[in-house]
């Protein structure tokens, strides 16, 4: 992907999240969101290394992954607003946005829960004879979850073509990575014989290059790779923090964290007129997405449990 393409994805996510936070404030998006702001280079760079037929699993902080894999921002925003034309028909919301047609097997509200799902999907894709791969996104907090380590073992044993993208944004809610992780994230993967490397998660080019290498290994039958992508979570853990202000990090620390901004890292690689043309185009797309979400119909309460089962019995 070109520098302009990478920039466009980063800016798309940034602009989407800014608008989504506004819609939380104005009550259009109920329940709040976990903003992805600051981590955009990870979704943008890694998805740029994928084919449309590859699959991904995402997290509670999943908007970036879903958008970078190609979801329609308007239907995504409508999902956050709980509307019928949303990606999940308003049944999933921010933490469960999914677009199976694009290989987005879903955001997931349980920390770490999607990692074995991605590994299993990857294994099955390979077993069916294709060279498709899966990416599992998860946070630094997830590496202390037993099921994640169990999934590392299975993926390595059975050579599942899965790229394990760990987004180390410094925190699991209020807990610093260093206070939660004994040893290291890379060491956890290496203990299972999984190649692992640290990546600058604020640089889309770096993430793209590292993912492309991991994807190539996976497609060739070389099994899983872990990429620890470091970035800083610019915003609150969740929008409820905007009011509650739990105060686990200082304003000075936040300012330092925001100093390296993926939007600027990638924006600096473009000619100013190219960048502003992309910005203008995205403003149009995203303003339209907000309008679409605001105007979209609410689902009918009588259909609250539609789709509870894939097949009804009796």
């Amino acid at each position: 992907m070109t520098d302009a393409g990478l920039y466009r994805t980063v800016a798309l996510i940034r602009g989407f999240e800014r608008r989504a936070v506004e819609l939380v404030r104005s009550g259009v998006v109920p329940g709040g969101i976990h903003p992805y702001t600051g981590q955009e280079a990870i979704a943008a760079g890694s998805c740029a290394a994928l084919r449309p037929d590859d699959v991904v699993t995402s997290t509670h902080r999943g908007h970036g992954h879903v958008l970078a894999k190609g979801a329609d921002p308007a239907r995504m925003m409508a999902e956050l607003a709980g509307r019928e034309p949303g990606l999940n028909r308003g049944r999933g919301g921010s933490m469960h946005a999914a677009d199976f047609a694009l290989g987005v097997l879903g955001a997931n509200a349980m920390v770490g829960a999607a990692v074995p799902i991605a590994a299993g999907a990857a294994w099955a894709l390979r077993r069916s004879g294709s060279d498709r791969v899966a990416v599992a996104y998860f946070g630094d907090g997830a590496v202390s979850q037993g099921v994640v380590l169990e999934a590392f073992n299975l993926a390595a044993l059975w050579r599942a073509p899965v790229v394990l993208v760990c987004e180390n944004n410094g925190f699991a809610t209020s807990m610093r990575t260093a206070d939660a992780v004994a040893g290291s994230i890379l060491g956890r993967a290496r203990a299972f014989g999984i190649p692992a490397r640290a990546v600058d998660g604020t640089d889309p080019r770096e993430v793209l290059a590292a993912t492309a290498e991991a994807v190539a290994r996976a497609r060739a039958g070389g099994g899983p790779t872990l990429l620890e992508c470091a970035a800083y979570r610019f915003d609150a853990h969740h929008t409820w923090e905007h009011a509650a202000r739990p105060g686990y990090r200082s304003a000075a620390e936040e300012a330092a964290g925001r100093a390296r901004d993926p939007l600027e890292v990638q924006g600096a690689r473009l000619a100013p007129e190219v960048r502003s043309a992309i910005d203008a185009e995205l403003d149009g797309v995203l303003d339209a997405a907000v309008e679409f979400a605001r105007g979209a119909p609410h689902p009918d309460p009588a259909s609250a449990l539609a789709h509870l089962y894939a097949t009804e019995v009796g």
């Binding site: 109920p30 329940g31 709980g82 509307r83 999940n88 308003g90 049944r91 999933g92 919301g93 469960h96 609410h298 689902p299 309460p301 259909s303 609250a304 449990l305 509870l308």
Partner: peptide, 8 residues
């Protein structure tokens, strides 16, 4: 399974 949309 509780759906996301508040009315549901």
């Amino acid at each position: 399974v509780l759906p996301f949309a508040p009315a549901l």
